[in-house]
Amino acid sequence: MEEYSPTLQDWVAKQLAQADKPTFQKLLAYYRTRGGPGLQLAESEAVRRGIAYPQPFTLLPDEYRN
């Protein structure tokens, strides 16, 4: 299981928060491929910035979706 130390986690969160929009989108795309602890931080930052998370593809009818 991959993880960041608390110091590194704070540092990455800060970098993501300070990144300009195009850089952040690149980082978000990167972490969505890479996964790991950076993805959680990037997703939280995306929510904070109001960037819609794309719905995963599913065959379930709408009423069964979260």
Binding site: E2, E3, Y4, S5, L8, W11, V12, Q15, L16, L27, Y30, Y31, R34, G36, P37, G38
Partner: peptide, 13 residues
């Protein structure tokens, strides 16, 4: 070796 995730941001750090 320090048990940290190795990615773009952690490398910069």
């Amino acid at each position: 070796n320090a048990g940290q995730a190795v990615d773009l941001q952690s490398m910069v750090w």
